[in-house]
Design a protein around this nucleic acid. Sequence first.
DNA 1: GCTGCTTTAGGACAATCGTCCTAGGGCCGT
DNA 2: ACGGCCCTAGGACGATTGTCCTAAAGCAGC
Lengths: 190, 190
Amino acid sequence: MSTRDQIVEAADGLFYEQGFAHTSFADVAGAVGISRGNFYYHFRTKDEILDAVIARRVEATRAMLARWEEESGDPAGRIRCFIRILVANGGKIAAFGCPVGSLTAELAKLGHAAQAEAGQIFTLFRDWLRAQFEALGFAAEADGLAMYLLSRSQGAAVLGSAFRDEAYLRREADDLCAWLDAKLSPTRKD
Amino acid sequence: MSTRDQIVEAADGLFYEQGFAHTSFADVAGAVGISRGNFYYHFRTKDEILDAVIARRVEATRAMLARWEEESGDPAGRIRCFIRILVANGGKIAAFGCPVGSLTAELAKLGHAAQAEAGQIFTLFRDWLRAQFEALGFAAEADGLAMYLLSRSQGAAVLGSAFRDEAYLRREADDLCAWLDAKLSPTRKD
DNA sequence: GCTGCTTTAGGACAATCGTCCTAGGGCCGT
DNA sequence: ACGGCCCTAGGACGATTGTCCTAAAGCAGC
């Protein structure tokens, strides 16, 4: 792996675990094991690293959504893949929150120009979820349902990390799956 | 108002609008219009200011809950007071997110000792909401409903600020009110 | 074996960080 | 009028910040 990729990967993790403002050049350089001079050769400013980290996350999100598209045949199964992030990444979410939500929140406070780019990852999820709901027959409702799922997930991530409660994240994921099942079987509502 | 109170008030606002890590002594001193030397007389460390800000927020939250207790006679109306924060503070939430959620999230990333104290504000809301639901007859369900409302509010705040969409916050508040009404009238579920 | 480009290391730079000290106003009781 | 205490101003401190420069190592093609 190239030095540049190592830097972006280390910065990605550090931005997630300790925030963008609280992560310094020295932190990233130390994590990679290179000198600050070498660092400056690849990224001249902190904002450049942030842009690269966001681009990396966007690409990783795209790849993940595409993988779900392959692995799961039906749209409902794909939506369950999304819900399961809360469980699969439960440990990190309980400790550091949602990577997307916490970064956009921090950039919004900093008034940073890259906030719009970071928020684009939300749009990625939103559009993908809406497409799944549309495939399930929820034409006009689809975007609202996508936003509902996004919102519930973000709320769960915030409270899960505030209370440092991984079990709560599992319960929320189960509850969301139950909500999805109820939406799919219009015979009876709980 | 005493200088100390002015400092805490200014720090409260700055921590909310630009984050704890990104707010310096100079920022707060500048906002109040005093010298850093004077500042140091009232607070010796940054953590002391943070503790004072959290204590102020806890107190303000307690007072707000008590006010709702007086103003609204029935528990359902009190819960609607909670939901209405999303609308009343919509402008600031769309810009900076939820003060409670964003602070606890930041302190969790920083591994700061005060994170538990900041999260206590969530507990304040949680217990108060649970009491309202218990008064409405939801005995065993009450805590789950309280967490549901908290989670939905936090999710709305995160997405509202990510998309900078104040109208979305209003729609979410309306949706939560409708959810509450449906919960209260067991005759029919939407 | 020399040349030239990419990559690296290590330090210098001004600015700012949190923290701390000291000198001196302002106001008190006497 | 005066000694004593609360409050304030202003600057100093070492460390760290983001940024930048320079010298040299590694490696390509000729």
